[in-house]
């Protein structure tokens, strides 16, 4: 098990090298550099040249990349090129906003999605199933930008029930969480439905019913437990996607999280900050998927058996 975790974590290294190189090269290809927004009308040519040298802009991109990654592998995420503040501090100061919204969205999404998915699976082929399928289709295909604005117009402008933006009290979570959670709900509900459909045909449910297990327990204890793995995967993917910070949702709702931080970093050509954000979110992504993988073992004893191979106390039957 530990070996497995370590192996998975080692995979992070090539992943991080790839994403960081990608972001460096892409941002180098974009027109403009970080110093462009710093130039003022009173600067002399010498000042500008000095700035260029300070940011190594007179050297090739690969030099800057290697320099940055060298620092990174020595535990230094660097300093924002624009503000000069530590990238790590910037990331950490913004992370709570994204984390809280992500958790609320995931909880909202999952808590709604699982009953919907089960409901649809139990009524597969009926009008109810078609209705929920329609809902999930709308949910997955609706652009969140558009949905967010729609909710804003309705609930912040017309009814003025929730704030139109900002990261404040509980009420400010509602609209962004619905916007991002709805997509999550739709995807998870669809996944729940299909994996429940598969499980609902299983023989062991018939065994459970033959024992006189009430239908609600048949679903909850016997079926859902077997359907968990794909559902968990979907939720885990959703969570890690949210944690990367949805630039769109954070922009629409003025949410000061990682998504906004990254967008601003890219638009200001702040390569170190952008790269730092991407690296951190990649790490989170890999770790969450790893946790989900490990959760499989809790849900499914067969997988647990695989991890525990060797150390299992195996008794021989008489």
């Amino acid at each position: 098990m530990l070996r497995y975790v370590i192996r998975r974590l080692l995979w992070l290294i090539p992943v991080l090298l790839c994403v960081s190189l990608l972001i460096y090269v892409l941002m180098d290809l974009a027109p403009g550099t970080v110093i462009d927004s710093m130039i003022t009308e009173q600067m002399t040519p010498e000042d500008i040249e000095k700035l260029r040298q300070e940011y190594d802009l007179d050297k090739p991109v690969i030099y800057r990349y290697v320099k940055y990654m060298w620092g990174f592998f020595h535990g230094d995420l660097g300093k924002s090129q624009v503000t000069g503040l530590s990238v790590w501090d910037s990331f950490i100061s913004r992370f709570p906003a994204t984390l809280k919204l992500s958790l609320v969205s995931v909880v909202f999404g999952a808590v709604l999605a699982i009953p919907i998915g089960i409901f649809a699976a139990q009524r597969a082929g009926t009008i109810w199933d078609n209705l929920t399928t329609g809902f999930t289709l709308i949910g997955t295909s609706m652009p969140s930008f558009w949905l967010g604005l729609l909710l804003l117009i309705l609930f912040a402008y017309k009814i003025q029930l929730f704030p139109a933006g900002g990261y404040q009290g509980p009420s400010s979570y509602v609209l962004p969480a619905i916007t991002s959670g709805l997509m999550m709900t739709a995807i998870t509900a669809r996944q729940t439905r299909s994996s429940m459909l598969e499980v609902l045909r299983a023989d062991y449910l018939r065994t459970a019913r033959a024992k006189g297990v009430p239908e609600r327990l048949v679903i909850r204890r016997h079926a859902l437990k077997n359907a968990w793995i794909p559902i968990l995967t979907t939720i885990g993917m959703g969570l890690s996607r949210f944690l990367a910070g949805s630039a769109v949702i954070e922009t629409v709702f003025s949410w000061p999280g990682i998504g906004r931080l990254t967008v601003e970093a890219v638009s200001q050509r702040d390569v170190t900050l952008a790269c730092g954000c991407v690296i951190m979110t990649s790490i989170l992504y890999v770790i969450i998927l790893l946790i989900v993988d490990l959760l499989y073992a809790f849900v499914d004893p067969r997988i647990r058996g695989k991890y525990a191979s060797g150390s299992r106390k195996r008794k021989v039957t008489a």
């Binding site: 299983a202 018939r206 065994t207 033959a210 009430p214 016997h222 437990k225 004893p301």
Partner: peptide, 24 residues
């Protein structure tokens, strides 16, 4: 029915491989 099944009448199923819940 739930009160009768498993108590008054119960059944041994044909295929033991798939009749048991793998996660319990």
């Amino acid at each position: 029915l739930e009160k009768i099944r498993g108590k008054d009448v119960s059944m041994i199923f044909q295929d033991p491989m798939t009749s048991l819940n793998p996660v319990l």
